[in-house]
Design a protein around this nucleic acid. Structure first.
Lengths: 213, 213
DNA sequence: CGGGATCCCTTAGGATACTG
DNA sequence: CAGTATCCTAAGGGATCCCG
């Protein structure tokens, strides 16, 4: 029996043995967004010590959750098919945890990956399907996000491009998702800044993305 | 910011701050089966040190996941409504972890709660709905389980009562759930012992409960 | 006795510096 | 850039004790 095992034979027990160590599930979350290099993972998890990141990557690899994949001169980490099966679990866990989020504190950062994942969590396909195809751009921390909603399909990635609405909500994005902020008033009061496009589209954004708090 | 926080503002991060500590999710799993006393929890988690159990119970309480509830002279711990919202997450996690379960090792125990939970994970309502109402009894460790399947509704609890089939699979229950064991051959080879009732009903059992491995 | 609290030791996790 | 090496702290583990 492994050193840190729980001495119990059950599905949940095995799961937490594989992905229950500190930081492990956050690494999985970031890899659910896409394959990432060591340095990209470290950047997205600002407070993880490098030795812990290295250890977790090895453990997750040994557990069959992730794999190292050579990509033209560099190595990236990516989920195995088995690891990818965690997506619904992590999405549900993110929705659950979102409800317990208080106001952001100064020491708390928002990484590109975590924001992309939260947007996926908040995405409402049924609502989106009834709305026109729309592209949004927003900035979180140092990452520019391009959010494309086409029918009931969502595509969020880093980068830029032509969009219908570009806005900056600063640390208020999550309040927007939670429905705490009325779109029109948020713009009027300066909580959200419209950089480009028609501000009315922010209403469409909050109908497309919603997480109860 | 709390001492063990991750310094990141996101739903998944908040979730693992609340239930990501060692042992915490196993406590939640056992409480998803029903309210439990301190000693019952300790019994179901054989290797948890009592100080850790006490600490986790306080933390989960502070997080709003569980509460202490006085019940006629004794105190039980139970999930809050917010904690109960974790049920689909833990079920999905259990199904995921089940796939990575190897053969049971000697030091690994199976508690009543974990077995009840694994049965819930493995329950297939659609298959059950097409089968007659059936009651099974089985023994795991020191716990006698009464499993009632009525249409697409499952009720598993500790205890006894009149059943259609009573069997003992010892450490092979999980192989039965995984479909590794053919019911008829399992009985013929002695992997499963029929204590009472018609052995053919074991086939109905494996159609009702299944988890791919 | 159930429901913990205390003690002491071990080991994982964290901060930082360093290397191929 | 992608990790090791080192050192230190704090959490986990195991046994025992306490208190209503």
């Amino acid at each position: 029996m492994a050193a840190r095992s729980y001495g119990q034979y059950s599905g949940v027990t095995r799961a937490v043995e594989l992905i229950g160590e500190r930081w492990a599930l956050l690494i999985v979350r970031d890899l659910l967004v896409g394959p990432r290099r060591y340095g990209e993972l470290a950047e997205g998890l600002p407070r993880i010590p490098s030795n812990i990141l290295a250890t977790r990557l090895k453990e997750l690899q040994a557990a069959g959750v992730i794999r190292r994949a050579p990509r033209s001169r560099v190595v990236v980490y990516e989920l195995t098919p088995y690891g990818r099966e965690l997506e619904p679990v992590v999405l549900a866990l993110g929705a659950w945890g979102f409800k317990a989020l208080g106001p952001p504190e100064d020491e708390q950062t928002v990484s590109g990956e975590s924001m992309i994942f939260d947007l996926r969590t908040a995405f409402r396909p049924e609502a989106a399907a009834a709305l026109p195809t729309t592209a949004y751009a927003t900035t979180v921390g140092s990452a520019d996000l391009l959010i494309r909603v086409d029918g009931d399909v969502l595509d969020v990635r880093r980068g830029g491009g032509p969009v219908d609405l570009a806005f900056d909500a600063g640390r208020n994005v999550h309040r927007l998702l939670a429905g705490d902020l009325d779109p029109e008033r948020a713009i009027a009061q300066g909580d959200v800044t419209v950089l480009h496009g028609r501000g009315e589209l922010l209403g469409r954004f909050v109908r497309t993305f919603h997480l109860a708090a």
